[in-house]
Design a protein around this nucleic acid. Sequence first.
DNA 1: GGCAAGTGGTGCAGAAAATGCAACGCCATG
DNA 2: CATGGCGTTGCATTTTCTGCACCACTTGCC
Lengths: 267, 267
Amino acid sequence: MALEQNETPAARSGASRVMAILDALAAADPAVFPDGLSVADVARAVGREKSVVSRQLRSLLETGMVARRDSGRYELSWRLFALAVRAGDQRLTKLAAPLLLRLTETVRERTYLSVLSDGEVLTVLSEGSRRSIEAVNWVGRTIPVHRSSSGMALLMDYEDEHILDMVRRGGSGVSDREARDFLAQVQEARRRGYTVANRIFDPELLGIGAPVRDFTGRVSAAVNISGPAFRIEPHIHAFGGHLLSMVRALQASLGSDVRPYAETGDL
Amino acid sequence: MALEQNETPAARSGASRVMAILDALAAADPAVFPDGLSVADVARAVGREKSVVSRQLRSLLETGMVARRDSGRYELSWRLFALAVRAGDQRLTKLAAPLLLRLTETVRERTYLSVLSDGEVLTVLSEGSRRSIEAVNWVGRTIPVHRSSSGMALLMDYEDEHILDMVRRGGSGVSDREARDFLAQVQEARRRGYTVANRIFDPELLGIGAPVRDFTGRVSAAVNISGPAFRIEPHIHAFGGHLLSMVRALQASLGSDVRPYAETGDL
DNA sequence: GGCAAGTGGTGCAGAAAATGCAACGCCATG
DNA sequence: CATGGCGTTGCATTTTCTGCACCACTTGCC
């Protein structure tokens, strides 16, 4: 299915005329049209006069929405990509804040939003429950990647070899056994959807984490719940579900329709 | 700089009106507008009647390019992100990402993948000591072609006259001497295989770049390493070698057997 | 309360587009 | 050298958009 008649019923407004063309360019299978689409290709796809399409494409070219290859064929331009990246990136913390708060209120434990920074886990946002004891403010601090549920989540998409590399390089005195344990945890998390760090960072702490993917599908951040192991341990599965549905909501507002790994279905 | 009058001279066609609005929504500083932009905000940003903007936004809303928050304010939406993942060269970004990560881990400096977009250098991917959120994120932004090692790499195959043209056209106040210096750098890079921008973009930054060629031999992207000059300067030759071998691997996976300019042999 | 300012949205006549047809030059292919 | 597909343009007609005035509503502020 490379090209198809996009007979949108309400295809009358100017914006949807533009959209029809952009959609046609986006829907083109790069394997079938490796060099972009010609004016005639687009005209067939949207079911319009080639003269109309020709003029519209020129207009889109001027605005930078589409680009023209050497061959004269058209494709969506990098500028669209840039637009989305800027918009998606800026919104991470803003959109995460209310969702994080809601998650905290649900699980009654402290929650965190982190990103990978220089091979370590950097906490950028945190919401606490009144109930929790810890007064430590983690925002702005980093912890080694191998010692948290967020670290596992942030490395989730990396190749196994890479994960071992990063873990070994991250901590100074990381034993081989530790690294392999970490990898095993990540592998299990890939199936389950969320990571669990049971008494790893601290003998009394338990963390549950999940990766946040941006619109390109890359893991750009991680959300985790952390608290006393004795309190969280009985609810790991339930909390994991809450975490996944929170991440799903966050990704939706970030423009990502990528679903978390191994959707469990429960929530 | 949150909102500004985008008085594009050729802002008459329907498509550019749409683009202006999308630009305004993407460029809005989330710190200033945490909840999206109102109709009036957008109208001010694009310098048009609010009635026009109101109608246009509704149209964009119907197509799914923008979404409306509970507050009634607008933000970019899923349709744009869906288009964006299809924009540019998906093969390139997908294949480059892991290689870029490995390069970063080897040289321990931030690395970038850029393309030429509308006469400027657009950063598409970045790996390395990752964005600490508040740190400037370059992905999605453009810089003038004459101020980076990537710019040099992207223009490497053009004729000298053409390079001077593009440099002079790119920056508004580019001196003749600057342009000629740039050209000299490019000519040296052609012999060496990789470009070096020593304290050009910033008095303390040093960049090393290399062009990425597609199977036709055309330069379609550039990879560069950038960081503090004092830290990189002693390793220019070694880093250049690493860069070239990374680019070679990338080109191989892109289906290109074109060898980089002036293969140095080392790696 | 009540005023003022700001907001999103609508109706309408004139202004400014897009539309579709035909035609042109162009490049391949047979 | 004819053929067919391509991208583009001229032009009269149609359609849409524009900008103004105006309305209804909310917000902040005496």
